[in-house]
Each structure stands twice: as C-alpha cells, then as structure tokens.
Amino acid sequence: MSLQFNKSIRQFAKLMVYIFSGLCLVMLAIPTIQEGSAAEDFIELTVSTRCDPQSQIVNPTSIDIKVAFGSSASGPTALATMNTYGEITSESTSTHPYWENPNKGWVSFVFDGPPISANYYCQQDWGEKKVHLSYEPSENVKLYLTTNNMPSSNELDVSDIDTRSTVRLAPPGNDDIRYSAGKGSVNPYGLQVAIPIYGQGKGHTVLQNNFM
C-alpha cells in the first residue's frame, strides 16, 4: 500500500515538472510566435515628461552710480544717482552726520536695492528662497547690505565671489515659481555703496547673485 502511494507521488511530481517545463517553453516561444505571426502593426507613441529643477535668474547686467559732490557753509553735501536698466532707479544723498561711515575718509550712499528675481521650475520645495550677494575686491568701492535707510556694517564678503550676505527672496502673491527681491518687490533691501573721498572719481567691481 505504502509502495503504491510513493509511486503515485513520484508520478504526480513528474507530471508537474512536465507541465512547468511545457509552460516555460511556451512562454519563451511566444515572442517568436508573435514576431513571426503578426497580423497587424501599430505605432506606439510615447510621451515622457522630464522636469529637472532649475532656476532662471533675472538681474541687472550693470549698475552705474554717478556721484556729485558739493559744499555749503554748513558742511559737505553729495548726491548719488543709481542707474539701472538704462534709467535712474534710485537716488541717495549723503550729508555730514554719516560722512565718515563706514570708515573715515569714505562716504556712503544707501540705495534701494535693484530688483532681482528668479524663476524656479520643477521644484518640490516651495519654502523660502535666498540669494547670496558678494562682490569682487575693489580699491575704490565697498558694498554693504542694509534693511533700512541707515548705513550698515554688514559688508558683503570680498574674500571670494561666492557666498555670504543674504537677501530673502519672497514670492509675489501666490506665485509658486517666481521669487523676487529689491525695489518694487515684496521684499526690498538696501544696497549701501561706499567710495573713498579722494578716490580719483572712479570705482568698479563685479557683483554676483548666488541663488540658493
């Protein structure tokens, strides 16, 4: 009885192996059968979406500042005009009380920071954005960031045109993509420019906006 049962088991197992092997052969053979027996053809149209996070920066290509000095019986005066986008965008006067800031022999002008913006595409994080301002070392120009109309001691980094003093970027309204700062935006800032009084009248530097 027991011998008979073991034989049945072996026969059943052998049958299962045959069935499995047969199925495998059929599955392997299907592509060949399909390729060889196509009765119709079709065009497969595939649309793939690829959205790489990226930012598009918009800022002035150049800023020109013209300083006109004068004197009165009560003290020295100066008027500076900032020219961006081909037109005067900001004016600043400097009079005696702040003449020494930030250093003796230098005179400072505080301007409305020029508008800068960035369009952020395909980003998952809609949190606060920032831009780091820095500038190249210059003998006749020093730059500072301010949050009001007073001279600041927050000088931009000059050791390397890469990082430091930060301006917040705020989205105007409910715009999830476009962030901006500076004059006319929801997040204005002040750009303080200092020049030496006996600076021979010329100064030049390169600013860099580094969006984070």
């Binding site: 790489d52 930012s55 920066i57 800022n59 800023i63 300083v67 006109a68 420019v193 100064g203 906006n209």
Partner: peptide
C-alpha cells in the same frame, strides 16, 4: 542636475563715477 539647479549664479557690474566738484572757499 538637481544640485546644479540650487546654486545658479549671475554676475553683473557696478561702476561708480565721481563728478569733480568746484573748489570754493567759505
């Protein structure tokens, strides 16, 4: 590309020109 997208930078120039004032005595 993801890391590059978060560190994009843009340069621009800043020039200062001083108008020579008139010397005056008081």
């Amino acid at each position: 590309e993801w890391s590059q997208a978060w560190s994009s930078a843009s340069d621009y120039t800043l020039s200062v020109d001083c108008v020579e004032p008139t010397v005056v005595a008081f």
